[in-house]
Design a protein around this nucleic acid. Structure first.
Lengths: 239, 239
DNA sequence: CGTAGCCTGTGGTCTGACCACAGGAGGACG
DNA sequence: CGTCCTCCTGTGGTCAGACCACAGGCTACG
C-alpha cells in the first residue's frame, strides 16, 4: 500500500501505524505484531526503519520481541509501563534533564498519595506488604539486599493503592536514582542502626495505614523518606 | 576497541555507552554525539544498531538530530523531558497499559501538589499564569483554542512550582489524554457556559494560591478537574 | 575583495545478505 | 500404528554497502 509517504521520517510512519492500531483496537495486549518484513512491505519503508520504531516500542515497555517461530515468537504487545518509565527517567536524570531533588520531591508527592489512598480505603490488601516487612527483619541482609526489599516494599504499597500510573512512575523514579541510593548507603556510618530505624518506620507507616490515620501516615512517610535521603547525603537539607 | 561484545544486544551496547558518557559527564546538554559512523566503528557494531539506539534517545527527548554539517548538525544532547514523557504515556494509554481513570487520578495528585507548593511559597511568580488567564477571556475562542490555553495554564502553574519532574509528567499526562479531552468537549451541550465556568474556576484557584490558602486551592483545583472530566464523560462519576 | 560553486561530512533510508533460534511438519524407525 | 528425530520455514538480530538530501565551510574564480 505504501501510504502517501510521510516526509522525512519513515520510522515515524511505523510508530503511528502501530499507535493507531492500538487505539483502534486492532492491536491489544497479547497480540502479535506483523513481522518486520511484512510491516516493511505494507508501509513501503525499509526494514531498518521498521526496526527503529519497534526498538522504541520495546524500550518503552510496549512490546517484547523474541526470535524463533511459533505463537510466542515475534513482537508481542505487552503493556509493561514500569520498564519504560524507568528507562526514561533514568536517562533523563543522567542527561541532567531532571535534577535529583526534583525526583525525590516527586517521589514524596506520590508516596504521599499512595499512603493517603491506602489509609482511606478499608478494603486494601496489604498481604504482600506484610511479607516484605517480615523479610526485612532478617539480620543477615546486606545493605544492598535491604535496599532491594525496601524498594519492593514501597512498590507493594503503591500497587496496593491500585493506580497503575502512580505505581509505574514511582518504580521509575526509584530506579532512576537507584545508583545514587546505593552509593549513598555507603556513606552511612552505622548501617545496622539505620536498618533498625527504617524497619521501625516501615512498621509505623503500615500501622498508621491500617488504622486509617491518613495524616499520621502521610507525616510518617514523609519523614521516613526525607530522613533517609538526608542521611545518605542525596539532598542538601530537610528542605 | 569493540568492547567484549554484549551477547544479543548490539543496540543496548550503544545505549549503555551513551548513558555512561552522560553519567560520567563526558556528555552533557548541548554537546554533540560522535557521528553514527564513528560510534559504529568505536563500538564494533553496525550502523543500524547505532541508529536504533539513537532513535530511542530521540523519542525519549534526550537528543535532537539534524542533517547537514556544522556545529548544529548531528545528534545533540538536549534534555527535553516533556516530549519523551508525553510519548511514553500516550503510547501506554493506547496500549491499555494505563487506564484513563488512573491517568486522571494521577493528574489530580500532581496538580494538587503544584497548587499546594505555590500556595505555600510567597516568592512564586505567576506573571505567565495571569497572561494566560487574560488570553482565555477572549470570547472568540473555539473550544480547541480554549483547551489549548487551558493546557498552557496548567503547564504554567506547574512550571511556576519549579519541579521539572512534576511539570514534565503533568504535561505528558495531559498530552496522553488530549484526544479524549478534545473528543469530550464535543459532548458538552453548552460550551459557552462551560467556558465561563472554567474561567471562573481558574480565577478562583489562582486567587486562592495568591492568598496562600493551601487547602482552599487544593479543593478548588480538585473540583475543577473532576468537574470537567465528569462533564466531558471521561470518567464514570465523581469517583 | 566578494561571491558562486564545489566538497565534505552528517543523518535518513533502502537493499540484500547472513546468523541463531524456535517450532512445526514430515519422514524414518521401532 | 506410534514415537522420535530431522529438516524446513519463518522470525528477529545484525551487518555491510550503497544512495540521497542537506548544511556548512572552503576554494577558486570574477
Amino acid at each position: 500500500m505504501a501510504e502517501p509517504v510521510a516526509p522525512g521520517r519513515a520510522w515515524r510512519t511505523v510508530l503511528e501505524r502501530i499507535e493507531n492500531d492500538l487505539l483502534s483496537g486492532a492491536l491489544g495486549p497479547g497480540d502479535r505484531l506483523p513481522s518486520e518484513r511484512d510491516l516493511s512491505a505494507d508501509l513501503g519503508v525499509g526494514r531498518s526503519s521498521v526496526r527503529e520504531a519497534l526498538r522504541v516500542l520495546e524500550v518503552m515497555g510496549l512490546i517484547r520481541t523474541s526470535t524463533g517461530s511459533g505463537p510466542q515468537a515475534g513482537a508481542i504487545v505487552i503493556a509493561a509501563p514500569s520498564g519504560g518509565m524507568a528507562a526514561l527517567l533514568r536517562l533523563q536524570v543522567a542527561a541532567q534533564g531532571f535534577p535529583l531533588t526534583d525526583v525525590v520531591q516527586t517521589r514524596l508527592v506520590l508516596e504521599d498519595a499512595v499512603v493517603a489512598a491506602l489509609s482511606a480505603d478499608p478494603q486494601r490488601d496489604l498481604t504482600v506488604v506484610h511479607s516484605v516487612l517480615d523479610a526485612m527483619d532478617a539480620d543477615t541482609l546486606t545493605s544492598g539486599e535491604f535496599l532491594a526489599l525496601d524498594a519492593s516494599l514501597h512498590y507493594a504499597l503503591a500497587e496496593a493503592a491500585g493506580n497503575t500510573v502512580i505505581t509505574a512512575t514511582m518504580a521509575g523514579l526509584r530506579t532512576a536514582i537507584e545508583s545514587y541510593v546505593v552509593e549513598g548507603a555507603a556513606r552511612i556510618a552505622r548501617w545496622d542502626a539505620m536498618a533498625s530505624r527504617l524497619r521501625a518506620e516501615h512498621r509505623a507507616i503500615v500501622a498508621a495505614i491500617e488504622q486509617g490515620d491518613v495524616s499520621k501516615a502521610k507525616t510518617l512517610v514523609n519523614s521516613h523518606i526525607t530522613g533517609y535521603y538526608t542521611a545518605a547525603g542525596l539532598v542538601p537539607g530537610a528542605d
